Simulated assay, not measured.
Amino acid sequence: MSGATEAITKIRQKMGDRLAILGHHYQSDAVMQHADISGDSLELARKIATLDAEHIVFCGVYFMAESAAILRRGNQKIHIPDTTASCPMADMALAGHVNRALTLLSEGGRSIVPLTYVNSSAAVKAVVGRWNGSVCTSANAQKMMRWALDKGDAVLFLPDRHLGWNTAEALDIPENERLVLGKKLIDGDPEQALDRDAAASARVLLWPGFCPIHEEFTMSAINEIRKNTPEAMVVVHPECPPAVTAAADANGSTSFIIKYVAEAPQGATIHIGTEANLVHRLRAQYRGKKDIVPLKTSYCEDMGKTTEENLATLLESIETVEPVDVPDAIRQPSRAALETMLTVCA
């Protein structure tokens, strides 16, 4: 047992029910062994309201801790072992740019309902809440996009264009009713990025962001599998490019992927296109029963910033360290956006 493992174990025993450690599926095994609750973004968000713990430690990236801080009760404190663990995709959509884009897209009287992926900052979620929109995860994106389209003339889906496109595809929304907005939105120039004439005829407007990890999965890898091992199964995350998700046998959230592997027949070979920590964990779990192979080994550096060592360091000072929090001006509208999702998907 390492020194960090021993320190974490002792603190958990000492604090008992006052402490809850939540771990996202993309965390390393070394960290996940200490998690009281593991799951994807939706599963972990749902757990916040049910926890009695005074201190909740989120092993993931910063937007997840922010979401927990938005949903927490007054007596709860939210922590993250490394506050620099950001999300490159979330950083591709800034609150001021989103608000300006919504203003421009709404000119002429169209009702644009913003729907932000949970992989976004609290400030962006607040903008979405002020515009009467909501939040989604990869697990409930289809249900939430239907909700948004029923509510308004069009949905602005952000920040991940791939998840938005793949969700619209699953809902059979025609391609000529989808529009990926200009890349200059990421650089902060909505006026230059928006073709308002084209946007006026689209029902699904897609922010041009993407996940650098899932962008690495390509058609060449799938073509190689189909050529050499045609009996193998391929399942990918819907943050992958549309051509990749279309060529796979299935696509879905991390929880979907876990279930897909569990339900696959004994002896199956399954290639998985998502962050490598989850793939390696599944490979170990099913060793000798099913052959689990990464479509490509792709690690999220920001998820990797949480380690046993900095988790132990956090726990050793948890009574005095500054918790993650958001200002009330952001908390209220962002909480409304998150609670709409939890209500629609209850």
Rank of each mutant, 00 (worst) to 15 (best):
M1V: 07
T5I: 07
T5C: 07
A7V: 12
I11C: 04
I11D: 02
M15S: 06
I21C: 10
I21G: 01
Y26D: 03
S28Y: 07
D36A: 14
D36W: 08
G39K: 05
G39W: 08
S41K: 05
L42R: 02
K47H: 11
I48P: 00
D52E: 11
I56Q: 00
I56D: 03
V57F: 08
F58D: 01
F58G: 00
G60L: 12
E66N: 06
S67N: 12
I70M: 11
I70T: 05
L71E: 01
R73C: 12
N75K: 11
D82K: 12
A85T: 06
M89Y: 07
M92Q: 13
G96I: 04
G96Q: 11
G96C: 10
V98D: 03
L102S: 11
L105M: 10
G108S: 06
I112W: 05
V113M: 08
P114V: 05
S121G: 12
K125N: 05
T137L: 08
A141L: 08
K143Y: 09
K143A: 15
A148D: 12
L149C: 12
D153C: 13
D153H: 12
A168S: 15
E169Q: 15
E169C: 15
E169T: 15
L171I: 14
L171Q: 09
E177H: 14
R178D: 12
L181P: 00
L181Q: 03
K184F: 11
D187F: 12
E191A: 14
A193Y: 08
L194F: 10
L194D: 00
D195K: 07
R203K: 14
L205N: 03
I213D: 02
H214N: 04
E216K: 15
I222S: 00
K227V: 07
E231S: 14
V234T: 10
V234K: 02
V236H: 01
P241S: 13
P241Y: 11
D249L: 07
G252R: 00
S253G: 01
T254P: 09
Y260E: 00
A264F: 04
Q266D: 14
L278T: 01
H280A: 08
R287P: 00
G288V: 05
K289T: 13
K290L: 06
I292P: 00
L295G: 01
C300K: 01
C300V: 05
T306M: 09
T307D: 03
L311R: 01
L314E: 00
L314K: 04
S317P: 04
P323R: 07
D325H: 08
P327D: 14
I330A: 04
A337I: 04
L338P: 01
